[in-house]
Amino acid sequence: MRKQFAILKEDLMDKKWLLMGLGVLIGLLGCYVLYMLNTMDFSQMQAYIDSLPDSVKALLGGQLDVTNPYSLFNAYFFSFLWLYCGIFLVYMASSLVSQEVENNTIDLVLSKPVSREKYLTGKILFLYVFTACLMGLIVALVAAGMGASNVFIEEGLHWERLGAVFLTSTLHLGTSAMTAVFFSTVFLSTKKTIAASIITMFLMFFTGGSYGTASAAGSNPLQYASTWFYYNPAQYFGTGNFGSFAGDVAVLICVNVGLIIASLFVFRKRDIPV
């Protein structure tokens, strides 16, 4: 593992300010949303929701309980994490290997006694550490904001919900990053990898995300193939329902592992172009 850690360390050194900047920025955005919730009149919002047509209520059904600050915070913040962090992570993961090929730096590394598997696992390890640290920073700032929020104190501070969001978000963002790593081993080109990864990400969102599944009234069989179907912070964080948590985590872990194996398989067969 020494060589993987050497690769991980150098990548982390390169991206440390980016990690801290992004983590603090998104965390502070979460704190701002928490602050907004403190000033909201929940009874008026409930009256507004009640006035909506039944079809619109059905679309929001189960996703938005406006009397509950956890649910509302999730709708405003955690539901959009894939936009805040996901696209950035996909961009970073896409360029991690292919940019080394394009800049010819990979030749310097792979001409040393480092196997392709070790090189790629070093990069993958970095992506998970980066994602976990990013989510850690965001969750820590959100936790601090929740601890200082009267609305959440009155509702009760459920740290286990935040822990569940941390774990599933890290795994879910990990699947997006691993998809990008897989495409980068296929294309060895940053532009093609970013395009393929972003398209895949949006396809997954529309087939398995809450909007996709709600609009298809749960009858869409493609939803099971989407990682969004197994990412349910609305349940764990919004309502404290952990019924699907273990299953979701297991599926997300399997998807991550599958993508890692596929990436390693493709990468070991590839010619490294000049």
């Binding site: 800049n103 010819n104 990979i106 030749d107 310097l108 590394v109 040393k112 000049v274």
Partner: peptide, 28 residues
């Protein structure tokens, strides 16, 4: 084996010292 590629690529934001130390660390 030690190798100099024809198309020598570098991590542009690194110093020469960091580049060399990183790559030397990859030997056993």
């Amino acid at each position: 084996t030690a190798y100099i590629p024809g198309e020598l690529g570098f991590y542009k934001d690194w110093t020469g010292r960091r580049t060399l130390q990183y790559l030397f660390k990859l030997y056993n």
